[in-house]
Design a protein around this nucleic acid. Sequence first.
DNA 1: CTGAAAGCGCTTACAG
DNA 2: CTGAAAGCGCTTACAG
Lengths: 331, 331
Amino acid sequence: MQPKVTIYDVANAANVSMATVSRVMNRNPKVKQETKERVLKVIHDLNYHPNAVAQGLASKKTTTIGVILPDLANDYFANLAVGIDDIALMYNYNIIIANSSEDTEKENKIVDNLLAKQVDGIIYMGRDQTEHFQKSTKDNGTAVVLAGSVDQEGTPSVNINYRKAICDATSFFLKQKQKVALVINDKNYSINSDYRIPGYQDALKKYGVSFDPNLIFEYRDNNSISNPMLQDIYDSDATAAVVYSDDVAIMLLNKGFQLGKSIPDDFQIITSNNTVVTKYARPMISSISQPLYDIGAVAMRILTKIMNNEKVQDKQVFLDYDIIHRGSTRI
Amino acid sequence: MQPKVTIYDVANAANVSMATVSRVMNRNPKVKQETKERVLKVIHDLNYHPNAVAQGLASKKTTTIGVILPDLANDYFANLAVGIDDIALMYNYNIIIANSSEDTEKENKIVDNLLAKQVDGIIYMGRDQTEHFQKSTKDNGTAVVLAGSVDQEGTPSVNINYRKAICDATSFFLKQKQKVALVINDKNYSINSDYRIPGYQDALKKYGVSFDPNLIFEYRDNNSISNPMLQDIYDSDATAAVVYSDDVAIMLLNKGFQLGKSIPDDFQIITSNNTVVTKYARPMISSISQPLYDIGAVAMRILTKIMNNEKVQDKQVFLDYDIIHRGSTRI
DNA sequence: CTGAAAGCGCTTACAG
DNA sequence: CTGAAAGCGCTTACAG
């Protein structure tokens, strides 16, 4: 274990003050070229690496941001996180990632931890933000951007236009005169109440089909093919489904196979996240394609702007989506 | 934005010194009960949250650890990360996660960042550690634990016994007199040269089958069903394959389907990581089952011990694995 | 262009 | 059991 070399050692060896070393490190332009070179050489020779914790305390900037997400093991969030991480590294930020597990108590603890560590900003993903999160970040003046999560109170966010995407997927089926089921998680989450269900209804209205609440399925709990909800969908009038999650879509597909249904002949499916599993299924599953990496990347980019007090053009950014047709839909 | 309340404000309001407030926060037992309660009340009333950056500078402990992994979007690493994160939170650590993308230059930058931020330890995953990583962590005296990655130089690690697991999987096929292909990534990675290939050879020896190097396939690049390697496997003598990655196993399965092979009748597959995709495939893929969450969790637990200078029993921890037979093998 | 000094918000011997 | 003071390793006005 080598002795730690501090800014003080560099200053001594280079015959300048700590302030000058600091200026060189921070690329302050008003340092004489000659001095700068001398300091740079000493920095290199001594293999000096500034202590970011001390920098953080003195400058009140930690170049660390927090990322709160429901589940890192979920491909959807993991892909967003990769986009965030790449841009973060590019702008010299590090990310503290924490799984909220959609558990409010755990999330509160995470938020407290993150703020105690003086993160410069937070990217939040998942369902609706908790009150504690909103209050704490506001009190601390911490920059927040939502990624792949809907906005409740004017917080900047990056998403696709869920309402329009669900409307498009539903319309695709309605054009074929299918009875369309909408499979979501909790009806009360804003993303469902404010975007998915209205989008579904937009499509119905466009095609003059009346809304049947029995065709909205709330998928919950038991995350396996034995979840009775899957059976219920096939037992209903529906001949097609727009599904909010790829995992659920795959299970719906496999359940159909188990029941002897032919997909897409007897039943069609469009899912929402286009994660890699859609391509692993047989038939491959048609999906709304979201630019996950980009959503994360753009969210991080916006966060850097907010942290630098730069102007942010649009608070709500909608990135383009596509609907990719594979084996689970008939064209 | 609320004014920040510091330890100084608390000390003032409670009529004690900062030192006493600090002692209360750190649960130092030698504080009079009465004083302690008074301070606690003020802390609560003022909603005081200590600044972890200042604590870090003063105590030289940041309660933050770094996690370096090749790809967060890979289910295998994501699951390890979840185990790490859970235990980290339990011991009040936060984790800075960084994607190395298996890019040496990027990884070096990450290592420098992490050490500059004075992380108390690092959990490393992925292929062989770089020299820069080894040297820097050693010079800094930073604790390191490997998770799901093999040990090169006595660094503590948590794994399953890959050699034995591959031997078991291979033996399963040899018992049926199959010709077994071993599908790996780069032969030169220690995990392949020191564990997987020897394990495969152990099985051959046990069954008196001679080693045929043409049955070792190095999968690279083009990560899709069109990768010619997949075709090569079916074109070889092999009637079964032990595969190092679930993604590759699925593609191998789907390739077989494309070629009109029946799995498991014409060809059998055992994969290595038992991630969720194995259950999404049809037939579902048999797999070595690694306790990914546990590997991450145990690695983090060991790291906490090292950081606390506690004794660590075994430097190399092997967790139990299983082989789970599903539709891609014949029993 | 450069330095001296205060300050960031804590912890930790040391002394009592 | 408690306080005064030094120190952690930087940055940042301020002065020159």
